[in-house]
Each structure stands twice: as structure tokens, then as C-alpha cells.
Design a protein around this nucleic acid. Structure first.
Lengths: 338, 338
DNA sequence: GTTTAATACTAGAACGTTCTAGTACTGATT
DNA sequence: AATCAGTACTAGAACGTTCTAGTATTAAAC
């Protein structure tokens, strides 16, 4: 019971050294696995540590070392896509860095989130899917190396890891066109990262196929709710398109929801395509055809970049990953009568 | 550009004191808003801090103070319900504690997650929805006050904040019975927190209404995928029940998905009820009737408990919150012909 | 004009580590 | 027998704060 520890501090290196009958320096060497201790001593110290319940104080360690060995990660807790990326970040250990999470929640913006990370002297910060204006990103960049994930930004000094949104959206749009669809609606992602590029890519691809007049862009968002609203709006306005592309899988799921509610079948009546290949894509009412972003790889690269930037082995740049089409059941050839 | 800071350390209190022309003690007093400095000095120091870009080093602060002022939070990143709780935890500031997040991801279990929190000398740990056996919880409890959220455990010294799962599931089951349903399937949550209690509550409630022979419990889980699988199994086995209750909203969403895929209508053919009132409940194909757990309140209470336990103002106990039925569109009276 | 009380300020010792610069010992090399 | 190289170990100064115990300075009280 912790009751027995009430008020007691946890044992320090000094107490460990005492228990093991050696100097704190030696105990320290053993605890961090540095060279300079005999095997016998190592064993003795480790046993003493075990027996007194010694646990190194990370604050003191970090303070004393010249570098904190910390990479900060700022992400939106409620965003499943971010959660996937965070999971991926933990996959790659062994670069000598620990991760410190900074949660963005409503009312706690990027600056608020990053401040504690900087106060812990994180050596680099991975910022996931932030909509922050470039000027403010620049200000952060002045304090610490910054890796921006899943968003494009052309500003010197800011490292970027992202998917080729333009290529991805082209893939999606051409998939639909290839299936014979002509009247295609695109549900936009508003201000969200990547939205502007995907929107433009949709328009450009439609234009390239001479379908500009059939291309409709509907205001949307990145949530199921916004997908639902946008689709309702489409349906309210009369003859629905034969295909709908959405900014991301969450919005696409909202599209599916609304179509089912309206009694339309997917893909028989309307084809739907998403973006991300999020977890929910598989379990949607109709398994979603979508553009796959490899979150594991993105996370891997992001961490590598952050570590490299912190150690000044890299110069900031842009890593663009190639997305691919994942065909499931929500898209099908346009029916001839349309 | 951070390039200009290459290799430069961030300014320390000593440099701040120098810049402001006072002692470090005084600069410290100003920076932490402690009494003992004149208004003029405060202004001068603050301006100096601003001008040299001083930012207190949290590691040093925490190390020096007798208490770290940290509460650790261990949660599953990929679990939306946990994300809601984490959001809630940030809502209540002003207790003098900062939150440190510990992410549980596949391959990184509770112990791995908690270790870094302890190394930062968190004064209490909030553990969300862990399935850890009591013995191991006890071991953690020996090191630090522990608040267990969304799970019942009867072990001295472990603080618990949970919803009344038994009452909640009774509410759900009786809602269905009250609508005239008799053949009701329950999709179980397996080993997940609360699952055992909800399962038993379902059985007991059915029994109390003389419906034991109509009560079916199907192995399931806490994800959409498992909801789908369980429902497929139900449909494969012949005459479907007129109502399905699921362990949580994610599983219930899977149920909806599978029912739609099978061409059944909700609630006309089958009523479905979930648990949690997660975000996805509203945007499900058919808006889910569900049992609402107030995550904001739970988070609020959990934080309060953690802070109180850390400061030794509370003795560990159990806080049980009352859930309520949220009626949406996925439940309706049983059709007479059933 | 001395005491008292309060306010503004400071020196310097912590906090729990790491790390540099050293000492003491061993065994091999000349 | 003296030198060297290597291994095992240690003393003690950092790291950047907070906090205790103080010293001046001023204002009020008699």
C-alpha cells in the first residue's frame, strides 16, 4: 500500500549507492548502462536498485544531460487520423528520444499545447495536422525545429512530411471518371490541412477531362456531421450526382449515412470515395473505396526527421509520400441511364 | 530562424536576472508570481523576460519543488471514448497540476506507459479503461495514488470513478422490454472494462421480466468490426431477434452496419441500443438510442480525485455516476407480428 | 529618535542526476 | 624495476530552478 510511503520520497541515487556500497557516480554508471563498471558491481547495484525500489528521476536526468532527449508531439486527441499517427510514432523507438504528448482540445490551441513542450526543452516538435497560419508556424520554428505532418507549407526552415494530396485526389477523381461518372460532387474540407490542394486537384482533374461544368464543390468539413450536412444539401438541390468524393473518410462516412437515410444505394445509385483509408473505412456501411495514406510510414518518417533535425543532421525539407487507391465496395461503374 | 540559435541554449534565470539587473531569486519570484517583488520590478523583469525570450525550464522547476505538480494520464490513443475523457480532463484547470499523457498503443502496455510517468514523479495517475488484473493494479498503487476510470474494481486503496454500468444496462434492457421486445440479443464486450457487469445486468434484467429463455448473449467486443461479426453470426443462425443491445456504441454501430448490409431496417425490423453516447452515436446510419455516460463529468471528477489523492486530502473510494437513457431513432416498439 | 513592522531584495544551499578529471589498482611491456 | 595501458572506481562541480534565512530600506508608532 502506498499508505506506507505516505510522505516518503522515492529513493535517490545517493540512497542506492549507499545500499550498494559504492559511490553515486558508479551507481549512475550502472543505472544508465554506461561503460566503466565491473560485472560484479553491475549485478550488485542492480540488485540493490530492485530491492530498494529505485527509479531514476527523469527530470534530474534530463536537466543534467546537455540535451533533454525529448521530442514533442502536438495532436488533436479527438481526431482518429491523428491517433493513428501517434500510434505510429511509438512504433519506431531506439533513436534515443522519448516522446512527449501535447493534446490539442477545443479551447487549447497549438500555442497553448506547445508551450509546456518547450518548457520541458523538447529538442524538436512534431505538429500533426495543424491549421496554423504560416507566420505563427514561423514563430514556433524560431524556438525549436518543427516537423509539420500532413500539411503542406512552403516556408524555409519548416520540415514537412505529407502525402501527395494533389496526386491522391487526382487518383480518386480519375477512378470515378474511369468508372464512367460525369456528374461528380466534391465535399470540401474547408480550412483543414490539405483541403485547399485536394479541392484544386479535383477541379483540375475534372477540367483535364473536360468535365468542368459537371464538377460541383460543396462546402463540408472533416467530420461525419459535416459530411451528412453537405450530402443533405446535395440531395435537397435536386438531381443528385452519380458520384461523390469527400475530403476524408469521416466526411465520406457521413455521406454514406445520409445516402442510406435518403434511401439511396451505394454504389448502385451513387458511388462514394473518401481519403485517408482511416480505420472506419472498412467498417462503414458500405466499405469505403478511398485513398490510402500510410500513417505508419508517415509517422516513421516524421520521427526520423524530428530526431535528425534535433541532432542537426538534416536540413529542413519536404518529404512527400505517395498515396494509393484502395478499392472497396463504395464505388462502381456509373449506370448507363444516368 | 532557429538557425540563428544553433547550439545556443535558451536563456536561463541567471541571464534573465542579469538582463533585468536583479538577483535570480527576485527574478524567480516574479516569474512564478510569488509575493515579494515591487510592481516596478515585476514590470522590469517581465519586460526583460520578453526581450531575451526567457522561458522557465519546467524540469528544473519540478525538480526543485518538493512536489512535481504532475498528474499522469494513461489512455488508449485509438479509443474515441478515452479521447473524450482526455478532452474532459483538460477542461478543469486551476488545481495547480499539469497533465502528462501516457499513450497506450498496441505493444505498449500499461506498465510500459506508466513507467515514464513515474520517472517524471507524477503525484497521481489516472488510468483510463484498463483491463489490467487487480494484482498488477495493486502493484502500481504501491508506488503512486491511482484513479481508475470507467472500470469497477474492489481493492482497497484504488480510487475508482465509473458509471453505474449495472444500472445503465438495466435502463437499456428495460427500454427495449418496455417497447414490447422479447427476443433480445446482447453483444458482449468480452474482457473490456464494464463488460462483465453489463452482461450480468442484461441477464438479470431479462430474468427479472421472465425473459431468461429469450436472452441471448453473443461474444463481441468494443469495436465496429466485432459488432459486425457478432451481428453476422446472429443473422446466420436464423430468425433474428427483434432487438439487439450492444456493449458500446462502436459495437452498436457495427450492428447497424451489418443490419443495413443485410437489408434489414432499423428500427422497423430490429431495434438497436448502444452504450456510452459516444460522438459517433449521433452520426450513425440510424442515430443511436444509447446510454449516456457523461464523459465531461467523469473527467472532472477523476481529475479532482487525482489531485485530492496526491495532496492526501482524500482517502481512496468509489465515485459512481448515474447514466441516463438517450433516445434517438434506433429503437421503436416491437411489431405485433413478431 | 528609538523601536516595530512591513516591504523589497539577495546569498547560497538544496533538488537528483551526469560528467569531467582525477586516483588506485592490476598486469603486461620494456 | 620502472613505465605504460587499461580497468574500476570516486570527488565534486555542474544543470536551472526554488526556497530558507537572512540584510537593507522605508514607514508607522510611540
Amino acid at each position: 500500500m502506498a499508505g506506507s510511503r505516505r510522505g516518503r520520497q522515492s529513493p535517490t541515487l545517493v540512497e542506492l549507492a549507499e545500499a550498494a556500497g559504492c559511490s553515486t557516480s558508479l551507481a549512475s554508471i550502472v543505472m544508465r548502462g554506461a561503460p566503466g563498471a565491473s560485472d560484479a558491481t553491475r549485478k550488485r547495484v542492480m540488485e540493490a536498485a530492485e530491492s530498494i525500489g529505485y527509479r531514476p528521476d527523469e527530470r534530474a536526468r534530463s536537466l543534467r544531460r546537455s540535451s533533454s532527449g525529448l521530442i514533442g508531439v502536438a495532436y488533436h486527441v479527438a481526431e482518429p487520423f491523428h491517433a493513428d499517427l501517434v500510434e505510429g510514432l511509438y512504433g519506431t523507438e531506439g533513436d534515443g528520444f522519448d516522446l512527449v504528448l501535447g493534446a490539442m482540445v477545443p479551447g487549447r490551441d497549438v500555442e497553448h499545447t506547445i508551450e509546456p513542450l518547450l518548457r520541458q526543452r523538447c529538442e524538436a516538435i512534431i505538429l500533426i495536422g495543424s491549421m496554423l497560419p504560416v507566420a505563427r508556424l514561423r514563430r514556433i520554428r524560431e524556438e525549436v525545429p518543427l516537423v509539420l505532418v500532413a500539411r503542406q507549407v512552403r516556408a524555409a526552415g519548416i520540415d514537412v512530411v505529407r502525402t501527395d494530396d494533389r496526386g491522391g485526389q487526382r487518383l480518386a477523381t480519375e477512378h470515378l471518371i474511369g468508372l464512367g461518372h460525369r456528374a461528380i460532387a466534391y465535399i470540401d474540407g474547408g480550412q483543414h490541412p490539405g483541403a485547399a490542394i485536394r479541392r484544386r486537384s479535383f477541379r483540375d482533374t475534372m477540367a483535364a477531362h473536360g468535365l468542368s461544368d459537371q464538377a460541383r464543390v460543396i462546402p463540408g468539413g472533416n467530420t461525419e456531421e459535416e459530411g451528412i450536412r453537405a450530402t443533405r444539401r446535395i440531395l435537397d438541390e435536386g438531381e443528385p450526382p452519380t458520384a461523390i468524393a469527400a475530403f476524408n473518410d469521416r466526411a465520406a462516412t457521413g455521406v454514406l449515412t445520409m445516402l442510406v437515410r435518403a434511401g439511396l444505394r451505394v454504389p448502385e445509385d451513387v458511388s462514394v470515395i473518401g481519403f485517408d483509408d482511416a480505420r472506419i473505412a472498412r467498417t462503414a456501411v458500405t466499405p469505403l473505396t478511398t485513398i490510402r495514406q500510410d500513417t505508419t510510414l508517415m509517422a516513421h518518417v516524421a520521427r526520423e526527421r524530428a530526431a535528425g533535425l534535433a541532432r542537426q543532421r538534416f536540413v529542413a525539407g519536404e518529404q512527400v509520400l505517395v498515396p494509393e487507391l484502395t478499392e472497396r465496395e463504395s464505388t462502381a461503374p456509373a449506370r448507363p441511364d444516368h
